[in-house]
């Protein structure tokens, strides 16, 4: 078993427009999902990220506002799960509640050697 990080990218303006009931259903769906994975013993952690932040360009050391430079999508949070291989991790990620909303999920194996 390996650990995988799911980077959840969302279109923040779309998410923030959700009416209260739908917001709540989305929150509850995430909670359910985490609970489910926890019960299976394959949930290893995760956090949501606030949408305000700074980005530092390495070579120029220019600091700009916002984590999102050109794209509408930005990383809204991450989960770390355990799976046999990348394909299994992708299958799990496909059930993440945020899949129903605009955005994407990046699945990356946590490097261990």
């Amino acid at each position: 078993m390996k650990n995988f990080m799911l980077l959840l990218r969302e279109e923040i303006e779309e998410t923030q427009k959700l009416p209260p009931q739908e917001f709540q259903e989305l929150v509850a769906a995430h909670m359910n999902w985490v609970q489910e994975l926890t019960e299976k013993g394959i949930f290893k952690g995760g956090e949501g990220l606030e949408y305000e932040g700074k980005t530092i360009k390495n070579a120029t050391r220019v600091v700009s506002d916002g984590p999102f430079i050109e794209t509408k999508e930005c990383v809204g949070g991450y989960y770390i799960i355990q799976a046999a291989d990348i394909d299994a991790a992708v299958e799990i990620a496909k059930n993440c509640p945020c899949i129903k909303y605009p955005g994407s999920i990046e699945v990356r194996a946590v490097s261990v050697y």
Partner: peptide, 14 residues
């Protein structure tokens, strides 16, 4: 109000 719900989305799952 919207930002408050958004914060719940980011925090409550874990």
């Amino acid at each position: 109000v919207q930002e408050t719900f958004y914060a719940a989305l980011k925090t409550w799952p874990t």
